[in-house]
Amino acid sequence: MDNKRIGFIGVGAMGLPMALRLCQAGYNVVFTSRRDEAVQRLTAAGATAVPTPLLVASQSDVVMSCLPADDDLFQVFLGPDGVIENMQPGGTIIDFSTTSPMMIQRVAAEAARRQIRVVDAPVSGGVYGAERGTLTLMVGADGAVLEEVRPLLEVLGSQIYHVGDIGLGKVFKIINNLLAGTTLVLVGEALSLAANAGADLSLLYEVVKSSSGNSAAWTDAVPTLLQAAAEGDQPAPSPGFRLELMRKDLKLAEALGADLGTPLALTTLALQFYTAACSRGMAKEDAKQVGRLVARLANADLSPRASDGA
């Protein structure tokens, strides 16, 4: 894969550091972006900026994408002047987006008609993992195609799982975010109950972290929420994973459950908290901040002065 021309579409919070890692690994990268920061950083790293996805496709052997939603995936690959119509037969699409399984399967079906392979490879690990190349990739693809592109994926992730055919990558990622998103709501409930009971929240954090109630969400979210409360209920200025995106992912889980006849009562309930948070202007904040909304609804004060004085 060393001589392949790599296209990248979707150089946002996750896509930008991923594209930069490919540049740093010596790959020839062409991309499109309207964001000045992305253009400046990638061109400084040696990448080539072009105006449209059409031009990315026409100049690339492998097109990578990291896009927010189904509509974006449709427009980029299947819409007018889309990637599939302008990519040479024999090329490969690697999609890192968290979208529905049905949409990536639709893209793959259209791509196959032009002899273009598709790798369904959503990622987990956040901006931190994208910057350091430690992402987890959940790959739905033909095994031979995965092995062909593995050197590229190894630049981006430290854990690469072949989870099945195209579409199953999305299923695995949706389930991962179902667990993460619902647990963040539970973290908010636990802190609210503790605060209203007069518990020392910092001490509670340490106790649970070493007990059976611990989780990645607890370890990651609680310090963020307590810091926000200490600073006057102010969210962090640079969100890692936006609350509106977690809402989108829980909606994907809810829709998949409906399609498969699988009841997802807790997921549906958690989704309502994210919807309420978005309606209160929190959409662009980090998903962990859903716990602030839970605390407000419980009339719970998460600030250190409240718990310390109990």
Rank of each mutant, 00 (worst) to 15 (best):
Y128H: 13
A111N: 05
V163T: 04
V62C: 09
F77Q: 01
V107M: 09
M87Y: 08
S158L: 09
M103C: 08
G91R: 14
H162W: 07
V83E: 00
V163D: 04
V63P: 04
I104A: 08
S60D: 03
S158H: 09
S60H: 07
H162D: 03
Q59P: 06
A141I: 10
Y161A: 14
I84K: 11
I84P: 07
I160L: 13
G143S: 13
V107N: 05
P80M: 06
D71Y: 00
D72T: 05
L135E: 03
E148R: 14
V155F: 07
P122R: 03
V155W: 04
V83T: 04
N86Y: 05
V145N: 07
E110Y: 12
Y128N: 09
C66Y: 00
I104W: 00
D95E: 10
L67Y: 00
R150W: 00
Q88H: 14
L152Q: 02
D81W: 08
E85T: 15
G82N: 08
P80I: 04
H162L: 14
A121G: 06
D95R: 15
G133I: 12
S100V: 01
V145G: 09
G133A: 13
S158Q: 11
F96L: 15
R117H: 12
T98V: 07
F96K: 11
S124D: 02
G133N: 11
I94R: 12
P151K: 11
Y128V: 14
R117P: 05
L73N: 06
A69G: 02
D120W: 06
T136H: 07
G82T: 06
L156S: 05
